[in-house]
Design a protein around this nucleic acid. Sequence first.
DNA 1: TTGAAATACTTTCCTATCCTAATTAGTTTG
DNA 2: CAAACTAATTAGGATAGGAAAGTATTTCAA
Lengths: 151, 151
Amino acid sequence: MLPVSPTTSPEAELASRLRLVVTRLARRLRTQLPGELSPSQLATLASVEGLGPLTLGELSSVERVTPPTMTKIVACLEEQGLVSRTVDPNDRRVARVEATPAGLAFLAASRQQKDAYLAQRLRALDDEERASIERAAELLEWILDDRVRGS
Amino acid sequence: MLPVSPTTSPEAELASRLRLVVTRLARRLRTQLPGELSPSQLATLASVEGLGPLTLGELSSVERVTPPTMTKIVACLEEQGLVSRTVDPNDRRVARVEATPAGLAFLAASRQQKDAYLAQRLRALDDEERASIERAAELLEWILDDRVRGS
DNA sequence: TTGAAATACTTTCCTATCCTAATTAGTTTG
DNA sequence: CAAACTAATTAGGATAGGAAAGTATTTCAA
């Protein structure tokens, strides 16, 4: 439809198209939930849930955020009762962060809310179309996997 | 792989998976270009390119940003010579913003750079796999199309 | 035709987020 | 035990974006 800048390879053209749709869809999903947690806070909570109890340092490198920033994020989450901290008895410098039941519940609710939009749209597709999307999701997961060479 | 919270329908499960991969890929694409323009500035420049000359007010509502913020964004883009402003001779309160040739060139380059990452990854797939992604991109474009009923 | 209201943008000031540098507390090692 | 190292925190600063108020211009009603 739109005459994109002259592309050299078919991959480049597909890349352009994929980038556009992924960027837009992500934006749509983001604005779908104006929740009371900042994006970093939500992402941190999700990491804690997915990766189990983590130290502040691990969290800050997972979230690509500096340690001081992570200190504040975790402090805020803790104040709201969504995570708990436990000092490691063997090395009392480190504190492990863990999701509380309230944190897990919050995450589940927030996911359900975001997924609701997508699920509603997906319901309008037929089985074959949903299978296509599933297959693509698989491939994109592979693309995102950094064990594949090249940063 | 990860035991997600109990989902009710197959659509919900796919939605969850799709949301995750789309969000992550979008983030990857975003951080891929640490360019000298902020995200809002880049988005504004892209809107100006795509929608033609726009007033500040139109721009701020398109970008979901308050007028003062748009004033600053445009001022910054103008300083860098990426857009130009022209006062409407019929109504001297309004100023129309337009992309300069330098602005268009910048956009093209930035797109090419982002696409490069994706294109590189896509090159590692075979034709069948690329076709799957293309099909999915089509479906996602349809999903994003707001002319389809339901917000 | 002129004052009041409306409109388009700008200026000022405030908040939130995330950074770097320096500090504190705890652990390991020579 | 002291020096070096490590984990987390505190202090301070940069930047993006918003709300409220201000300025310039246009429109409308009496």
